[in-house]
Design a protein around this nucleic acid. Structure first.
Ligand SMILES: [Mn+2]
Ligand SMILES: [Mn+2]
Ligand SMILES: [Zn+2]
Ligand SMILES: [Zn+2]
Lengths: 152, 152
DNA sequence: TCCTTATTGATATTGAATGTCAATATCAAC
DNA sequence: GTTGATATTGACATTCAATATCAATAAGGA
């Protein structure tokens, strides 16, 4: 019963970084933890602030460099949301799309196969050969909907 | 036959700016012309360079300020495409979505009603109340497809 | 034409993102 | 456990788009 294979997402990421030839350091580990466990997209500065709560020495460059590597390994991707164009959020294994709460930012993925089917046809009508798409939904999560109601 | 009511988009925009209490100046007119006639989203710097071809004195700030007003009147909106997050493109009258050529940037709008119908359902499945969406297609326009073929 | 005031562009400033580099830490090899 | 090549770090400097300031100018209603 000592086997405690929690298999956290950040633990998986550590392995993958390692396998890719990157070293696991204290600052890097702190960044992984925060990004992997976040339920919403974070800006580099948000990550920076959160990391420094427990690791005051870490520099902002380290945040950018770690994000770079996570992106390279397709573990996180950039998300455009509201004013922010540089937020980063964990990737799903396959190609999926985000549904983001406009109030708290908490995000979920969905595949959206039902709508993707129609993208080629839409393109054809306009004389374009569709090669990619960008779909993102915004809304209110259950938690935020609850809070809103209790104010009415 | 002297009536030459061309009713250019930029002319319409001038009227609307005027009606909104803004003044029509030479720099501003030059910006309107370029933005209104562009078949693809432009960055502030691209607009700046194009404007200065004929109006060397115009400053970059003026570009930003004019974009600000066009945006306020819902005549243009920001487009995120490739690395660029600040490009601006003319708006359609109603809510529509962009289909952008990945090679030359030329863009078309489509309504996408057939897919929008399904967004609420997608949200419900995940416990979200969908209030907005962001859909953008990328592909190759006819012209760019032609060029590509001739290389094969 | 006059006059209020919106607009302009030169100038300065901000701040996120990136480049540089000596000191340091990692981790594979021993 | 020790060693050593080198990946990583953070302080520091730099870049550059975006924003702020402000006196001079120009728009356009009266
Ligand atoms: Mn998709
Ligand atoms: Mn829509
Ligand atoms: Zn929420
Ligand atoms: Zn094209």
């Amino acid at each position: 019963m000592i086997t405690q294979d929690q298999d956290t997402l950040s633990q998986k990421w550590e392995v993958l970084l390692s396998q890719a030839g990157y070293r696991i350091t204290r600052p890097r580990r702190a960044i992984l933890d925060i990004v992997a466990e976040s339920s919403r997209p974070l800006t580099p500065l948000e990550i920076y602030d959160k990391v420094r709560e427990d690791n005051p020495g870490v520099g902002l460059v380290t945040i950018y460099r770690t994000i770079e590597k996570l992106e390279e390994l397709h573990l996180v991707s950039h998300v455009h949301h509201l004013g922010e164009c540089q937020t980063v959020f964990r990737c799903p294994d396959s190609h999926q799309h985000l549904l983001i709460c406009t109030k708290c930012g908490s995000s979920r993925y969905f595949d959206g196969l039902e709508v993707e089917e129609q993208f080629n046809q839409i393109g054809e009508k306009l004389g374009y050969q569709v090669t990619g798409h960008w779909l993102q939904l915004a809304g209110l999560c259950e938690a935020c909907r609850g809070k809103q109601q209790s104010k009415g």
